[in-house]
Design a protein around this nucleic acid. Structure first.
Length: 217
DNA sequence: AAGTCTCG
DNA sequence: AGAC
């Protein structure tokens, strides 16, 4: 068993990779600030703990979720929506840290989407085995703003498909610190995450954490 | 259907 | 990979 020096993304090359018009991967874009992001995540989940939401069909999602910012994405038997309060506590979601706002705006600008000011950050925690099946981010009122997705911890294979679920999906290995941005003509593309492989990350242990920034209104 | 199951 |  040969150790893979690139598995955790700590020494992988940085740069950009085009996925489709309006969609690209910024390799290692958040790597140098990952420890600060994790400290912020710890503070957020102390106030709004990770929980497994239910789909409208009543099935438990394998990725645990929480949110920060003025609005948070929630799912239950009633459907998907954004709301200002955490349904588990009845309190507002924790505020969006300044470092989150700056990272999201910087990554969006790097991808050609200037002036991105997210009002929601969904935080997904994947333990080994957790996944996210192909879906569209379509609960936002304003689809002109992009989606900015930050990967931390364990690697995962990102599926990036087309406007229809049946379109063939590209597979992209995402490492700690990678950021994916998609918007414009790619804003409604289907995407997902294959089951996360067993492993341990130096900073995050047996988990992958994904920050997904959206402008919902 | 942001999941689960079945078939190749 | 596809059906549901």
């Amino acid at each position: 068993m040969t150790p893979d020096l690139f598995d955790h993304g700590d020494e992988a090359p940085t740069g950009r990779e085009a996925l489709a018009p309006g969609a690209l991967v910024l390799r290692g874009f958040a790597r140098n600030q990952a420890e600060g992001l994790v400290a912020e995540i710890d503070a957020i989940c102390a106030r709004a703990p990770f929980r497994h939401m239910l789909t409208p069909g009543g099935q438990r999602m394998s990725a645990a979720m929480t949110n920060c910012g003025p609005l948070g994405w929630v799912s239950d038997r009633r459907g998907y929506r954004y709301q200002a309060v955490d349904p588990d506590s009845g309190k507002p979601w924790p505020p969006m840290p300044g470092a989150f706002l700056r990272l999201a705006a910087d990554a969006a600008a790097e991808a050609g989407f200037a002036g991105f000011v997210p009002d929601a950050c969904l935080i997904n925690r994947y333990e080994p085995g957790a996944r996210m099946s192909l879906h569209q981010d379509r609960d936002e009122r304003d689809l002109s703003a992009p989606i900015v997705s930050v990967s931390l911890g364990l690697p995962a294979i990102f599926l990036f498909g087309g406007p229809n679920r049946s379109d063939r999906a590209e597979r992209v290995l995402l490492l700690h610190g990678d950021v994916v941005v998609w918007g414009g003509p790619s804003r409604l593309r289907f995407h997902g995450i294959l089951p996360v492989k067993e492993g341990a990350h130096a900073l995050l242990g047996r988990q992958r954490i994904n920050l997904t920034f959206r402008k919902t209104a």
